[in-house]
């Protein structure tokens, strides 16, 4: 039992109530270290609220329950969302170093440059965000997330505003760069969820249910044999959840 407890980096149990309505009823979420967990569900079911709850942010409703984080560092989380949230007056490299700037730490430009090189934006480090395309800006946001060096990365629909080609490029880049991190991602997109996740959770009927993946391994490509089988299954579940809601 204690072994099981230690294995979980995050465990959340309880009920989420917004405007006197139960949004999530007696749910239980356990996330293992170094895995990519995706929460799927339609709009307004409480996916983003759940993510905020884990991060310790202000949520619009009430939560009756416990959030346990087996803390690794002083700063536990980094955050990536649909909007890149780059500060428009800071150039790219300073945006990557934003955490250090805000905490009045010594700026590590060398590390920031290395990360920008990884996201293939090193030669744009002195430019302002407004000169970059949406895809480029999201790559800067990814570099900023990695710069924080936190064990847990929370992602709130991070790729949903991108076009298909850019999205698939940044998805593979994220998969590569966030290897060994504990990632919790919220998305609408079942394809994205199947490609990236070890664990797939669905919010249906105010409950959090798990969609079993083969050996808890992500289905890395849509060309993989069992992709369509799991895609169909996921879509059916989502549609069912939509009808029942």
């Amino acid at each position: 039992m204690s072994f099981m407890k230690n294995k979980h980096v995050i465990s959340v149990e309880g009920s989420l109530i917004i405007e006197d309505k139960n949004l999530l009823n007696n749910f239980s979420l356990r996330v293992n270290k170094g895995t990519w967990t995706t929460i799927l569900g339609q709009s307004g079911v409480g996916k983003s609220t759940l993510l905020k709850l884990i991060a310790g942010l202000k949520i619009p409703g009430k939560f009756n329950g416990n959030v346990n984080i087996n803390n690794i560092n002083k700063r536990t989380f980094s955050w990536m969302s649909q909007d890149d949230l780059l500060l428009p007056w800071m150039n790219i490299i300073r945006n990557v170093c934003l955490g250090q700037i805000l905490r009045n730490e010594k700026l590590d430009y060398r590390k920031a440059e290395k990360l920008l090189q990884k996201v293939k934006l090193k030669n744009l480090s002195t430019q302002l965000p407004e000169t970059l395309s949406e895809g480029m800006r999201q790559r800067v946001a990814l570099a900023r997330t990695l710069m924080e060096e936190t064990e847990i990365v929370l992602m709130d629909e991070p790729f949903s505003s991108l076009d298909y080609v850019t999205r698939s490029y940044i998805q593979s880049l994220s998969r590569e760069l966030l290897k060994n991190k504990t990632v919790i991602m919220v998305t609408h997109d079942p394809t994205e969820a199947l490609i990236l996740s070890n664990n797939l959770l669905l919010i249906e009927n105010k409950r959090l249910t798990e969609l079993k993946l083969p050996n808890s391994e992500p289905i890395r490509s849509i060309n993989q044999n069992n992709f369509s089988k799991y895609y169909e299954k996921t879509i059916k579940k989502l549609q069912q959840a939509h009808i029942e809601s």
């Binding site: 991060a55 700063r75 949230l85 805000l102």
Partner: peptide, 12 residues
Amino acid sequence: MVVNLISIMGAG
């Protein structure tokens, strides 16, 4: 959302 990001980053 910027407020959330800044808060997570541990800014004073």
